[in-house]
Design a protein around this nucleic acid. Structure first.
Lengths: 141, 141
DNA sequence: AGCATCTACTATAGGCTATCGTAGTTGGCG
DNA sequence: CGCCAACTACGATAGCCTATAGTAGATGCT
């Protein structure tokens, strides 16, 4: 997944994808499409606003380059498939983000996360601890 | 801190700032400057490579816009000051990033973090656990 | 064969970063 | 007192990326 950047001031998907990219993945995931063509996406987006076929096509192509969609020739057109579910994508994003965090300083990052979790929900700390125990056990043998 | 975006494929500071921006903040922080002018930065950067005064100036200006440097007129020039230390910046970034993860659900975020820490350094898990215990104690009493 | 439809390629506009040219100001020196 | 060198801000340009659309080629139905 190359060329992804984050805009923390944006919400949800839009933090990781540009607006039109996000709109498109939103459609694909919410419709549960396993495979689709550009025209399918365009038809769907057009219900909300005017948008040219070619605009959608270019952006779908970018999503392909970014590794979110795979594609395959089907005669004259391409058929696209989502490479991952929305949850998988979120998770991949989170991994990337946490990766950058550790570059900034692991311990500090961890401390922040612990703080944040504790502040929002003290109960979660228990689950957190349990998870670490489990992981330690796994690693230990 | 507006207009900051992340490039997870980059290392450290460069994940949060563009290359020249990062170079400049690196200089400012590593020199421990409390206040400085564009010329100071340029002189320093020029030890490594050729770079025009104006290039530095423009980028310092952007760092001001992004909220990393405050500035004040001093006759014909500006005097700049870092708004935060490197650690404070890291922390602010981390907070922003973790904020974008809120879409995830804390539990999932935690699981990912634990995995990641365990993968990169099993020993850290111990510190991690200790941190949680401490936090629990704080909350409990 | 002819027209409407579908699609990919390519081009353009706008935004952002990195880079520098230029022109205006200031301070020191003859 | 005037001139030159140094310093500085502003503005311009090139390059990259996103969003958007125009156009031309292929296909299929009549």
């Amino acid at each position: 997944m190359k060329g992804i950047r984050f805009r923390p001031e944006q919400e949800g998907l839009r933090a990781a994808l540009f607006d039109l990219e996000a709109d498109i993945m939103e459609v694909v995931w919410s419709k549960g499409w396993k495979e689709f063509a550009v025209a399918d996406v365009q038809r769907e987006l057009e219900r909300k606003r005017d948008i040219a076929y070619t605009t959608v096509m270019t952006t779908v192509g970018r999503l392909h380059e970014k590794g979110l969609l795979s594609r395959e020739r089907d005669g004259k057109r391409y058929v696209y498939r989502p490479c991952m579910s929305r949850d998988e994508f979120t998770e991949a994003m989170a991994r990337d983000l946490l990766g950058s965090l550790s570059g900034l300083g692991h311990e500090q990052a961890i401390a922040l996360l612990v703080d944040q979790v504790a502040d929002s929900d003290a109960e979660e700390l228990g689950k957190f601890e349990a998870l670490i125990r489990k992981k330690k056990k796994e690693l230990g043998g």
